[in-house]
Structure formats: C-alpha cells, structure tokens
Simulated assay, not measured.
Amino acid sequence: MKKSKFLSLALVAVALFIGHNSVAQDGMMKKEKTVMVGGAEMYPSKNIVENAVNSKDHTTLVAAVKAADLVETLSSEGPFTVFAPTNAAFDALPAGTVDTLLKPENKKALTGVLTYHVIAGKFSAADVISLIKKNNGKAVVTTVAGADLTLTIKDGKVVITDANGGMATVTIADVNQSNGVIHVVDAVLLPKM
C-alpha cells in the first residue's frame, strides 16, 4: 500500500513538472519585444555587444569597441546605459579622427571616448526625462570615464552636451538589452582631452 501511495505521488510530481515545463516553454516561445536599429532587430535577451554587431548603423562603434578591448566589459552583467553614436555621427568628426583613434597607440584615448558614452546603471528614457525635470531642466551625469555629461530636453527630445559644448540628440530611445539599455545618438560626445 505504501508503495502505491509513493508511486501515485511520484506520478503527480512528474505530471506537475511536465506541465510546468510546458508552460515555461510556451512562455519562451513568445516573441520578445524588439526594436529595429540599423536594419536589425535588437533583442532584450542579448547583451549590448551581441545586439550592436547586427546594426549596420553601428559598424564604426563596434570596430571601436573591439579596438579598445571593451567587448568583454560591455558583454558583462552591467547594467549599463550606452549613448550609441551611429556611423554617420562618427563620419561627421573631422577627417582622419576615427582612423587616428583606431590606431593601437591611441587605445587609451579611444577607450576614453567610448566610456564617455556609458553610464553605470540602466536608465530608461523615462528615467532620464524624470532626472532632467527633477533638476530644473538640466541634469548632470557622470560617465564610466569619470567625466560629466549634461542632459536637457529640447523640442521634446533628450539632448546630451559634452564637456566641449558638443551636442548629441537621442534619435532612438529604450533599446533594451540583457545588461542595460542603448539610446542611439546622432553625434559623438567628446571628453576634454
């Protein structure tokens, strides 16, 4: 009798386990909410680097991240908020700037430029806007590079001002990643060098 009771409990446990796994599998089969960036879907289950490599608008940024040996860092747990300049943003820099930064001897300067686009923590567009409003229309944030960026709102868009007075506008917000969030920007932000 005890054996049949034990067997019945075991069968119930197996049935519950199978049912639970079916629900979990069905949940995983649901399509992730994705955003299109550079002609590619950005998946919230992938990290910053895994998504960025698929964007045709961010090939220069990806090359720079590789040259600065930041792939491992930006693939780590984070979380990070990245203001990601497009290829057009890099192309707008003075002629030769990108090529010069990508040279091995300029790795430290390149790392400084790239980490100037990263804030520790995950800040959605709503978080950024709330921070700006709480600070009377102008919020100052410290980047991973240790220097500040100033955030404001102009014509309903978030504008980021660097240490030199250069400005970048967020063109695509809230591209969620497994280890943070990307906000695409239309200009490269430059720290004081």
Rank of each mutant, 00 (worst) to 15 (best):
Q25S: 03
N176A: 13
V170H: 08
K134W: 00
G165N: 06
K134H: 04
M29D: 10
V49E: 03
N47M: 07
H58G: 02
V37P: 09
S130K: 15
A13Q: 01
G112H: 01
L151G: 01
A139M: 09
I132L: 13
M1N: 09
P79K: 09
K138N: 14
F80L: 06
S75W: 05
G165A: 08
K56P: 00
I132Y: 05
V118C: 06
S178Y: 03
N136P: 03
N135S: 15
I182Y: 08
I160G: 08
L16G: 12
T143M: 04
A145Y: 03
A125Y: 12
G38A: 06
S4Q: 13
P44M: 06
A13D: 00
N47P: 05
A63Q: 06
N176T: 14
I18N: 08
A52M: 10
A89R: 05
K31N: 11
I119V: 15
K30Y: 11
K3S: 10
V184M: 04
K31F: 05
V175W: 04
D162T: 04
E77S: 15
T161Q: 10
A68Y: 03
V98M: 01
E77K: 15
T169R: 03
H183G: 11
G137S: 05
M167N: 12
T171V: 15
L9W: 11
A84Q: 04
I153Q: 14
K108Q: 06
L110R: 01
K107Y: 01
D162M: 13
P79T: 10
V35I: 15
N164K: 15
A109Y: 01
V98L: 10
M29P: 00
L11Q: 03
D99K: 05
S22R: 08
V71P: 08
K138E: 14
I182H: 09
V37N: 12
A120K: 13
T100Q: 10
E105G: 13
K56M: 03
A168Q: 05
V184A: 10
A173F: 06
I172E: 12
S130E: 14
F17Y: 13
A15H: 05
S4K: 09
V159H: 09
V113G: 04
T73N: 03
D174Y: 07
D127Y: 14
K154N: 11
T97E: 02
K157Y: 02
L9Q: 12
K192I: 11
T81P: 08
K5V: 15
K5R: 13
V159E: 09
G27E: 12
L9P: 00
H20K: 07
A92V: 05
T97S: 15
D155L: 01
K33T: 15
I153E: 15
S22L: 13
K192S: 13
K192T: 12
K122T: 11
L16F: 14
T81M: 07
V144R: 00
S76N: 08
L9V: 13
A147Q: 09
A89E: 02
V158M: 04
N164R: 15
I129E: 09
M1E: 11
M1V: 10
I132E: 07
L149D: 11
A64P: 08
A24T: 14
